[in-house]
Design a binder for these strands. Structure first.
Lengths: 191, 191, 191, 191
DNA sequence: AATGAATGAGATTTCATTCAT
DNA sequence: AATGAATGAAATCTCATTCAT
């Protein structure tokens, strides 16, 4: 069994349950079923876990997105699917997103953050590029920065709902609909 | 002199300088010029400062926004001014925003958060309402949820820039321009 | 209203509820309905309360004893009444007795202790003196030390019961009966 | 080397020297020769030491009693030896007895107290049983409750002397003599 | 006499980290 | 590689006491 992976898994679980600040290394090792000292064979500190956690989270995000978004669907449909996917990830992992955010921010691991998140930005960027090439969205769009804006917009919209309560599916449906309309206009979608 | 206020002021300052994790209560009281025990007269812990800090931050935001946005300007101009203002606040206080976010999230003060942010949401909502009444933006807009989307979008765009480095004015200018165009289409602004 | 008395009353109440160690001066003043600083106008410290509390306790004890013991009763009857009275006091105030004991012990107020308890010792001593004069108990008895032994014996017997639970009336009845027989022989009572 | 035992040993020593109130945990760990944090590995607080201390104290008492009381001596002689032993223990450890008493009383460890004291009660009870079988004491005696009365009587008599001053050997001799006579009659000893 | 906010020395407590096994 | 008891520096927190009002 891979101890490093066990540590990361356990950390995600414990962080979600009690927050990053209140979590002691001893909580993590207990959850991982390993000895206190073993932790230090793999990570020099609590914060150094963050990039590894971030990586796992981005993988999860990508998995959910790719499971949700149909390759052959039209761009407008794909866009609503992306929104669905991001809402889903936010609902299930918003505590982790927050802690990655503040955990990375409070260290010198910041540069790794961009690298880690890059695959998701790129993937959306590519979708936008295709849509632009197909003439489905306005031609004035710069795909790279716009991809980031879209992801930021949707994530923040989802957080506004799920920050308080992850059981808000009614609210979430309304918010998603608002986001879709907002995006349709922002991107100048022609149907 | 109001000690409670002094504590909050000092906490914001010290948190900005050294981050929330590295800040000891003793740093805060030193900066506030009060005795260690006095802190506990007003706050039971470091995290319980968060709602009070959030309140001050929203006040600061409102002040900057109202100083930046001209009352008589047209809505499109006001919108770019709102974007400028949010970027400004984010640049100067992104550490605080991050910590409010994770600080609130890791406690049970979540419900207070909506209340605290409400004035800002409302203010933008009113601007949108006026613009809608004047026929400047598309009539299909629901002003309340859209106000939240707009603020979330701009904040997340600003954070993408300033999270790494608050000296990125060139990058910021480009990002703001992207946001403005994005918003112009999203809101269906007619000039 | 007499503040000093209010403080002593409040202290007894709070000490009984939470023990001497866990009781802060702030708890006492809160219960007494006075300001923190006022305490120090009457007592220089928490432990300096002890002699005053002890005095009140001995008064209570004497009151109960004198209400229970009939002046005209024969000595053997009076003795069982004394046992009843001490059991009663111990049941209701054993926490206080313990804290007076340790409270006085941990200070330099020890000398006051003897003075404070003296009236009770003396009263029992007088009863023994009378009984001796009446030839009801053995003539070899030294009344003063024996009075102390009797009180010590009965108190310790009562504590053995009530230390754990003040609702032990069945157990208490048995124990009292044992004490009475023990004392009857110890004192050489002739009936 | 057993750290838990070292802590209890050190605590008894330091408590005797400076009293329970004035003793800091840091004093205990210093005396035990361990690190501050190690204390918390074994005990959550100063008061939680009490049951462990009580146990050691009862062991010490038993040891002294068994060293003092001669197995082949007649019961009357054994009884005076028991009195001697209890006076000795009280002289040397009255501070500890007081603190066990109030320390146990102020916590929820009360139930353990009976268990801890049981061996001593039983041992005296057995002596009484033998004496009763040998017809040396009155046949109406119930050995178990009487054992407790005897121990309580002697302890309280000893405390009356040594509470104030452990150098009172003259007083102690007189008091012991009083106790012996008192007991001789109470138990109906036939010589 | 009475108040109670403020104090700060000093206690408790935590927990990341080490290291002998 | 793995362990986990032990560490102790460094933090939090308490609360008796003061003192300006």
């Amino acid at each position: 069994m891979n101890k490093k992976e066990a540590i990361v898994r356990a950390a995600i679980q414990v962080f979600r349950e009690q927050g990053i600040d209140k979590t002691k290394i001893s909580d993590i090792v207990k959850a991982a079923g390993i000895a206190q000292g073993t932790f230090y064979l793999y990570f020099p500190s609590k914060l150094s876990l963050m990039p590894a956690i971030a990586e796992v989270m981005v993988e999860k995000t990508m998995t959910i997105v790719q499971e949700t978004v149909q390759v052959n669907a039209s761009f407008p449909v794909q866009l609503t699917q992306i929104v669905d996917a991001i809402f889903m990830v936010t609902r299930d992992y918003h505590e982790i997103q927050a802690l990655i955010y503040s955990g990375l921010a409070s260290t010198e691991h910041l540069k790794e953050w961009e690298t880690v998140y890059a695959p998701f930005y790129n993937w959306v960027s590519e979708r936008l590029q295709e849509a632009k090439a197909d003439g489905i969205i306005r031609q004035s769009i710069n795909v790279d920065p716009t991809a980031k804006l879209v992801i930021g917009l949707v994530e923040s919209a989802a957080e506004q709902i799920y920050l308080y309560d992850s059981e808000q599916e009614d609210q979430a449906r309304i918010q998603k609909s608002e986001v879709n309309i907002f995006l349709k206009h922002a991107l100048g979608i022609r149907e």
